[in-house]
Write a protein that binds this DNA or RNA. Sequence first.
DNA 1: GATGAATGAGGGTTCATTCAT
DNA 2: TATGAATGAACCCTCATTCAT
Lengths: 222, 222, 222, 222
Amino acid sequence: MAAAVSGRGARGSSAKAQNATGGARAKRGVARREAILKAALEEFSARGFEAARLDDVARRAGIAKGTIYLYFSDKETLFQELVRSEISPIVGTLEHVSHVEAPIRMIAEQFVELFVREIIETRRKDIIRLIISEGPRFPKLAEFYYREVISRALGAVRAVLRRAVERGELANDAIARFPQLLIAPALVAIVWNALFDRFEPLDVRAMLRAHFDFMFGAGRAA
Amino acid sequence: MAAAVSGRGARGSSAKAQNATGGARAKRGVARREAILKAALEEFSARGFEAARLDDVARRAGIAKGTIYLYFSDKETLFQELVRSEISPIVGTLEHVSHVEAPIRMIAEQFVELFVREIIETRRKDIIRLIISEGPRFPKLAEFYYREVISRALGAVRAVLRRAVERGELANDAIARFPQLLIAPALVAIVWNALFDRFEPLDVRAMLRAHFDFMFGAGRAA
Amino acid sequence: MAAAVSGRGARGSSAKAQNATGGARAKRGVARREAILKAALEEFSARGFEAARLDDVARRAGIAKGTIYLYFSDKETLFQELVRSEISPIVGTLEHVSHVEAPIRMIAEQFVELFVREIIETRRKDIIRLIISEGPRFPKLAEFYYREVISRALGAVRAVLRRAVERGELANDAIARFPQLLIAPALVAIVWNALFDRFEPLDVRAMLRAHFDFMFGAGRAA
Amino acid sequence: MAAAVSGRGARGSSAKAQNATGGARAKRGVARREAILKAALEEFSARGFEAARLDDVARRAGIAKGTIYLYFSDKETLFQELVRSEISPIVGTLEHVSHVEAPIRMIAEQFVELFVREIIETRRKDIIRLIISEGPRFPKLAEFYYREVISRALGAVRAVLRRAVERGELANDAIARFPQLLIAPALVAIVWNALFDRFEPLDVRAMLRAHFDFMFGAGRAA
DNA sequence: GATGAATGAGGGTTCATTCAT
DNA sequence: TATGAATGAACCCTCATTCAT
């Protein structure tokens, strides 16, 4: 499951760079694209969309400023492709989750692991923060994120909760009406991490476990 | 309690504007300052710190561009003072909460009302979004917010939980270790409101109540 | 007649610069606008629209680059306003010409004087060359010039020729079908002046007189 | 005569492309050069020298951008060679004209045909417009054009007029002093064609005939 | 205090030119 | 010879900040 999330090979690369199959030219093009996206992620998450300078993105990627425009038509496109390229691999994972047959507390535990390892401990947390920050100014992006991630995630959560209720693992089905409640601590973790960690470090794993313990009853072993 | 939050009279106004003893001059200065802050709030929350233009702030406030600089030394200061001016009145309220002697579920219910009425339904939610968005670029601001709001809020939550445990209203004291868990849904509400409400409206009151019902047992009447 | 052409006072100046009636502020604004137009004329006619740099226009006008944008919304607008501001005063003059009651050869002689003094010997010749050069890329401009200058000029020429025929001053009315033929040498003069004068100077007055002598019979005295 | 003007075979091709003795290699090189020049003509006359992009020239010529530099050392050279390649074939024709022994009105009629067919109805009119537009920025080009075309054309016109006077076909020799007067309508035709034809179409042949009728007496049959 | 014209540094974007393949 | 990815100088335009009025 985690593998699906961290998979990087399948992402779409620019058409321009792929006319030769496996040629060194094409490979280099793909690498450049990746380098630009990586640099862009760092600059955008450090300064936000507006304040980030393409000059810095280029310098960080070790290329000339004009080169960016060989891969992305403008700053906004670069930003949107960045978000998409990081979000897309998550989507497949979400589909999986709702199909797993296991006690709900175990699924929750897997979610904790996955979330910490693939979001909190990677730059993906920054992407999510960027969506929160810039979403209102990029309605297309918010819609994409809602469609590809949020609605599927909530659907998966609902399915899991339903099965838990059927199996009698969950007496109270109140939270099924607001699946957001289950994920809320994850959002807190991301925001806390970015803003307040230096004042008061937060043990994300422990917090999420406490949350699920409270929701579903104690312990992984249960 | 709500009054304390929305109170606007006690905020510090520019020193320059207070050389007269409450004269019309000073009053006008205070009003100008307020108008600028109001306009700034609208522009900053609509476009973010970088993209907001002081020209638009001035126009919206009905003054000349240069006038802003009579009240705030630069754009960044204006932004920080804006956040402070909106955050400060909340602080007092937070102190109150932890002293209220009442069943925890009732306190929770008051919190729901207060949060929806004073945050979600006002522009204050935008301030919080701005802190999330711009915090990483304005460490001073994040620190201020942490010190004045977050740490006090968490302290208050902890105190309330402690009393609830003492009174036997709350068996499990696990969440006392992570008071963030109690507030997490409020954060979700703010973010959802800004990004996804047009796709799927969220009944914030209902969600928060479901949350507290689950945490503390059902119902307002309880 | 010449006065009408060279009149500069009546040209429209930016609305911004005219809120005070005759204030120093407004006057300065008008002067700035004129200075920018003058500098722009020099740069545009030396290098063409595309190659001209606003940086140079600013430097030549003795102002900062950004100041241009206080008076003109962009480079293209500056160019179009430049053409209009130089063309407009000509229009009135054209109306006059067709009403003058005088022997055709005398009218022609006046035209020669006017053309040389107000077009060839001023920067207005450059404006006409600019219209020829950039017209195809600025259809609006070509249309404006056709409507305001060409069609009126041809109309005036036709009227004069008609009266000349009626008075028996002109036997052959063939050229009335192509009034362009009467003005053609003026165009040659402008182009020659810009391109070939350094190789072979052209006495424009003499050429135009020879032209009209041939067309209408010899001499001013006639 | 017309054949000489439109002849394309004799034009100089790049030295680089001629090391093989007429081999297929060389031929291909010549064809490429021609393709580039053709594409350049279209782009330059549509947008002007500055605004034309070599990228578009390459695309239109069906080659890669870098290939242009194998045939022309830079954009300016390409432009100048383009003008030369289109102008050169005209030169020979001009020499012919002055030697033709025929009534002046017939020579004029041949000129009309030639001008319309080979200039107005081809892209050559655009070359002339380009010289007018860009001449001031490319003194070399203006000089070349003056030397190769203008001075010869005027010389030829003078010779023809001289013979016409000698033969008694032309009483007034005033225009011999300004041979530009004879060609002026051709310039008008080119400019009108580019700028005003859509507002008021101009029958170039008819205008030129009217012009020569007026100058030399009526009719082709004469 | 209040204005808004003026400034000029800075950023996004383009495109002629180069060069490794 | 041909390619087209890469470069980076240059240019238009914006906007926070200043200052004469």
